[in-house]
Computed example of a mutant assay.
Amino acid sequence: MTTSRARSFEALSGARALGWLATVPPGAGAAVMATGIVSVGLHLTGRAVLSGIALGVAAALWVLLAVAFAVRLLTDRAGWVAASANPPALTAVAATCVLGTRLSLFGSQRTALALLALSALAWPWLLLSVLRHFRRPEPGAAFLVCVATEALAVLAATLALAGQGDWLAWAALVVCLLGVLLYVEALLRFDFRQVLTGHGDQWIAAGALAISALAAAKLTASPLWTGSGHGVLRDFTLVLLGLDMAWYAVLAVCEVVRPRPRYDLRRWSTVFPLGMSAVASLTAAQAARVRWLHGLGSVLLWIAVAAWLYVAAGFTARVAGGRRRGAAGSA
């Protein structure tokens, strides 16, 4: 009897777990993006232990979301296809590339190359699916068409700098330029009222420029381009970073004018741009030889860390509250 009950309980628990995984929204990939980029920033500033912890969390979240992705594909194919037409689906590509970038910096080049290949396979299909269903106006998530594209450029350029092939740098250059064009497309469709009413993803307007600046900074650091080519890439990096900082300032002021303190899944899409702006500044400081950007990046990094802790606390409280309500309902 006891064995039978135990097996029934295990089967029920397994069914509930699968049911929960099938409901994980595509936008949850922003949590991996946010955690991964914070890990990169901590690595660049010499906080090896904290960076390693963040890397472990990002990797665990990525595995969880990969399982959720597979479960939904197997159990709700129609829902999976419908979700792939929305911009948050592109967080799967961006999250994989951000994790790959951190692993490359960690020295795991083969794993990073595998993640690049996986992302490159998923990216065109998801991108075209999203672009076909683009509307006007769009929320901040629209800028994920740029973010996912530039994430590929960043990972490819990082691997090129790690000695995995000059062709990756050329590919990164092409993809970086495409990402900037996609930013313009998203900007033309963006609902600018979101800067005051959005629940977190409006920050991707800044984050997309930040990751574009990071891709350009890594290309600037490449030995492939010298002379005027290097100068153009350097100026391109600084222009993109300047535009990012302008967006950052506007969005920060709007957060003060119109506070939105409640937890929302889209708040991970606030943390990511904060962290990406920090990493872009830290990388540009070295690549473009603008030393004061390192100090700015260090300050922005701790803002991103504080935001990560705040959003993580909100997520924990939301999960705990949901469990308590579930337990009360069962009773």
Rank of each mutant, 00 (worst) to 15 (best):
R189H: 04
A160V: 01
S281T: 06
H230C: 01
A66W: 02
M33D: 03
F134A: 15
R135Q: 15
T283H: 07
L233V: 04
S39G: 14
D264I: 00
T316R: 11
A85K: 14
T197I: 03
A151T: 10
L131G: 05
H43N: 15
F106L: 12
A122H: 05
T2V: 07
L127S: 05
I37P: 03
P137K: 04
S269I: 11
S8C: 06
L131D: 11
L224Y: 12
A206K: 01
A112R: 10
I37W: 10
G41S: 08
A11P: 00
G297P: 03
V239A: 12
P139W: 03
V32W: 15
L99R: 01
L99I: 02
S129Q: 11
Y310P: 00
L73S: 12
G27L: 03
G179E: 12
T226H: 13
L64W: 08
A6I: 11
P261R: 08
V175L: 08
V239G: 08
A313R: 06
A22F: 00
I211C: 07
W308N: 02
G297R: 11
A210R: 06
T226R: 12
V49T: 14
N86S: 13
P124H: 05
G329H: 05
Q109W: 02
T158N: 09
T2L: 10
G36P: 03
V32A: 12
L105M: 14
R234I: 03
T96P: 01
T111I: 12
G140Y: 06
Y310I: 00
V130D: 15
P26W: 04
W20V: 07
V195W: 13
L243P: 01
A208K: 07
P87K: 04
L21P: 09
F143H: 15
W167E: 08
I37M: 10
A112E: 13
L42K: 05
R266G: 13
G200S: 10
L73P: 03
C97N: 12
G179S: 11
A280E: 07
W308Q: 08
F190Y: 14
T237K: 07
L282K: 09
S222L: 06
G207P: 06
G322H: 06
S119A: 15
A114H: 14
R324S: 09
R189L: 02
A59C: 06
I37S: 07
L182S: 10
R262V: 11
S277T: 09
L161R: 09
M33G: 07
S212T: 01
A83S: 15
P261Y: 06
G52M: 01
L214C: 02
G36H: 06
A328P: 00
S298R: 11
L209Y: 03
A82V: 00
S119T: 04
A313M: 02
V40S: 15
L209I: 02
T283Y: 02
W268N: 03
L296Q: 04
T237N: 11
L300I: 03
L196E: 15
L178E: 14
R136D: 14
L187V: 05
I204K: 07
L196M: 09
G275K: 05
A120L: 10
V98H: 12
V256Y: 11
P273R: 08
M245S: 14
R5G: 01
L209S: 07
L90T: 04
G326L: 06
I204W: 02
W292L: 02
L241G: 13
L12S: 15
A186Q: 09
E255F: 06
V195R: 15
G321H: 07
R318C: 04
S84I: 00
T158C: 06
S330M: 08
A284K: 01
W292T: 10
R136F: 13
G231W: 02
